[in-house]
Amino acid sequence: MILDVTTLLLLISAATPILFAALGEVIVERAGVLNLGVEGLMIVGALAGFAAAHATGSTALGFAVAAVAGAGLAMIFAVLTQMLLTNQVATGLALTLFGLGLTAMFGKPYEGIKAPPVPAGPLGVNAMIWLGLALVPLIWLGLNRTRAGLILRGVGENHDAAHALGYKVRAVRIAAIAAGGALAGMGGAYISIAIVLQWTEGMTAGAGWIALAIVVFAGWNPWGALAGAWLFGGVTVLQLRLQAAGVAVPVQLLSMAPYLATILVLVLISARQTYARGGGGTAPGSLGRPFHALR
């Protein structure tokens, strides 16, 4: 049996970190900001969440601390890109390098410790999975059916027009970056607390970058992020199942699958967006452009 309930749960669990990070980045990019530091935010969330859960024995507190740590680190990015108008690509990269270094430095004492168990929620599925699933419609509603969401999208589509209408472009973007950082931090903590069950250096292993690719795949839409995350979860679980089944392909080659699948998906969706305008959703108009109000 290839698809039973256990496999399905495994898939949804494997997809959860990516889902959180991708949902966060959807909010950030819809506000017109390209934060390439998701990997750094996730790894900091993974360590902060693990450390807090280990110290208190409460995984809920662990996830909360991870959210705060992610939002806090994201503030460095916010100050640099929004106040000092630095290049968003370079700043995001710096955030990732800094996050990886910082966690390698402070993570040593936590190596080899087991995480406290995550309590099972309704239907034997933990609360974080439910929260991730609930966030999809909530963020969709927030973006598309509320005034705040309209302002956020306006800032992302055309920051000059939004500014002329009197909206605080910079404040909206900083808030979006904080929300994205919190979600990425929680996604990272899910990896250390609920999947791997311990802390190891560099354990996010590109999950943040995959989340960035999934945002493109999603057409900047929360429902698309869910589809992308499940696709990624499916590839991961399939790869693990094949390893366990002893397929005559070396483990190292099988473990390339999620990354190759991400490239493939990125190519397919980019081709669709390039050759069939209007299909699949397009990037926010002001994405990645710095905003500087002269008046």
Binding site: A213, Q252, V267
Partner: peptide
């Protein structure tokens, strides 16, 4: 080529290929 032919982001593709290369080296 993936950027030129399909418009795929070279940032994400080149970064993904780092992880692929690391696993290739391990193999």
């Amino acid at each position: 080529m993936l950027r030129n032919w399909f418009g795929a982001s070279e940032i994400l593709v080149s970064l993904m290929l780092v992880y692929v290369a690391q696993r290739l080296a391990a193999w």
